[in-house]
């Protein structure tokens, strides 16, 4: 799992997770977030990543371990890709202003907003958001913003319907929590995956040996 260390991710600065690695966060989750690690719980980037990792883990208790333990030959497994994107999206990024009457600097980080967008995946069971982008000048109040999310969807369900539900969930989240003027939400399905049970059935192997 060393490949998932933030330092190995292009464009990723270890400071984005306040010096922690994705490996450390996964181990921390494995331990039930106990004992409490103040340096992780006190890091916004780590908290955003933990939120996403928790949902990823909830999708299948052994999902992370199975994929991570496998040695992908040419391309990375989809879980590894998603973990890479989780780390990248946890970066604070730009300041998105919240308008107030006084001449103060009130804002939310782009990372916090990306975390919200990513959380919308919970509204569509089985769907995982791989990457989230906010295209447009988010630092200017009222500027038009285009949202793009890459998603991994489960095999066997109509992709268009899943994308529509995800788009609606993302839109509702952004409308409720932000003042962004969202002009479009593009959902790009880049991966269709078999669920673990289906994989095992197709290969005729048990769940533990399904990969």
């Amino acid at each position: 799992m060393n490949d998932s260390a933030p330092a190995s991710i292009p464009g990723f600065d270890p400071a984005d997770l306040d010096g922690h690695t994705m490996d450390e966060l996964i181990d921390y989750l494995d331990a039930g977030r106990t004992p409490v690690d103040p340096s992780i719980e006190g890091s916004p980037g780590c908290r955003i990543a933990l939120d996403a990792l928790t949902r990823l883990r909830d999708l299948g208790p052994a999902l992370l371990d199975e994929d991570v333990q496998a040695e992908p030959p040419a391309d990375e497994g989809w879980v590894r890709q998603i973990m890479t994107n989780i780390a990248l999206d946890a970066r604070a990024g730009r300041r998105i202003p919240v308008v107030v009457a006084e001449p103060d600097d009130v804002a939310m980080t782009e990372g916090a907003v990306r975390g919200l967008v990513r959380a919308a995946e919970a509204e569509v069971p089985g769907v995982l958001i791989g990457r989230c982008r906010l295209d447009g000048d988010v630092t200017t109040p009222g500027a038009p913003i285009r949202v793009e999310v890459e998603a991994s969807v489960p095999y066997g369900e109509p992709i268009a319907a899943l994308a529509t539900r995800l788009r609606a969930a993302v839109g509702a989240t952004l409308e409720r929590h932000t003042e962004l003027v969202v002009t479009a939400i593009d959902v790009v399905v880049h991966d269709v995956r078999l669920l673990a049970a289906e994989t095992a059935a197709e290969t005729g192997e048990g769940k533990e040996e399904g990969r």
Binding site: V98, P103, D104, V106, L116, H177
Partner: peptide
């Protein structure tokens, strides 16, 4: 006074 306030995390749970 000048205030600098930043939302850095939304606890979705």
């Amino acid at each position: 006074v000048r205030a600098i306030v930043t939302l850095v995390h939304v606890d979705v749970a």
